[in-house]
């Protein structure tokens, strides 16, 4: 009887050099409505639970920081 071997568990690498990047643009874009948000610092923060697609996190961080700085200048140096 031929026995099927279980496939090994997938691994995640914590080192950037060991990971092949996915083109974030292919994953779609996150759009945000400045008018509807009560907390601007959350406008551009990604959350996988919400099911939002990802975009380049560097840009995500830049957008979030800009929003915080625009709405609460004292919060940033």
């Amino acid at each position: 009887i031929k026995r099927k071997c279980p496939s090994p568990q997938p691994l995640l690498c914590t080192s950037p050099s060991l990971v092949s990047p996915i083109d974030a643009g292919k994953l779609g874009e996150v759009s945000a409505d400045l008018e509807s948000s009560q907390d601007s610092s959350k406008l551009y923060i990604f959350d996988v639970v919400s099911g939002a697609t990802a975009e380049d996190d560097v840009e995500l961080i830049a957008r979030a920081l800009s929003s915080v700085a625009a709405n609460n200048p004292e919060a940033v140096c």
Binding site: S15, K42, I45, F46, V48, V49, I61, A64, L65, V68
Partner: peptide, 30 residues
């Protein structure tokens, strides 16, 4: 540099040399 890093702490977390955007929800898998 120092000021930018301080400001970034509000929206991102440094992890082994990279910045990771903070999730909106505290129970996020991120």
């Amino acid at each position: 540099l120092v000021d930018l890093q301080k400001s970034l702490n509000q929206v991102a977390v440094p992890v082994h040399g990279v910045y990771v955007a903070k999730p909106a929800k505290p129970n996020s898998p991120r």
